[in-house]
């Protein structure tokens, strides 16, 4: 989780990733931010994320992103 928080704070400075639960739905991050975040996640966690995974529900919260990472690492 610490690695993910570091990625998020660098990709989107100023966003409260610890509290926000509707990052995409509330327009706090966009699809362009998601591409940036995913690119970093794939590099740092050495996982493959597909186009089908780039759905808002996977990026609405830090917990959702962490679940996606865990799923891809399993």
């Amino acid at each position: 989780m610490d690695q993910l928080m570091k990625i998020l704070s660098e990709c989107c400075p100023g966003v409260d990733f610890e509290q926000e639960q509707n990052l995409v739905d509330d327009g706090i991050i966009t699809s362009l931010d998601i591409v940036t975040i995913v690119s970093e996640i794939m590099e740092v966690f050495d996982i493959e994320i597909s186009v089908d995974d780039l759905m808002p529900e996977h990026f609405n919260s830090t917990q959702a992103m962490f679940r996606l990472i865990e799923e891809k690492r399993a």
């Binding site: 699809s31 970093e40 794939m42 597909s50």
Partner: peptide
């Protein structure tokens, strides 16, 4: 064909515009 093409580009520093949905 889509995912292999896009995934190959998802590397740190990638620039993109108007992401297409599935």
């Amino acid at each position: 064909q889509i995912s292999p093409l896009v995934s190959a580009c998802l590397r740190p520093g990638v620039l993109t515009n108007c992401v297409l949905t599935p």
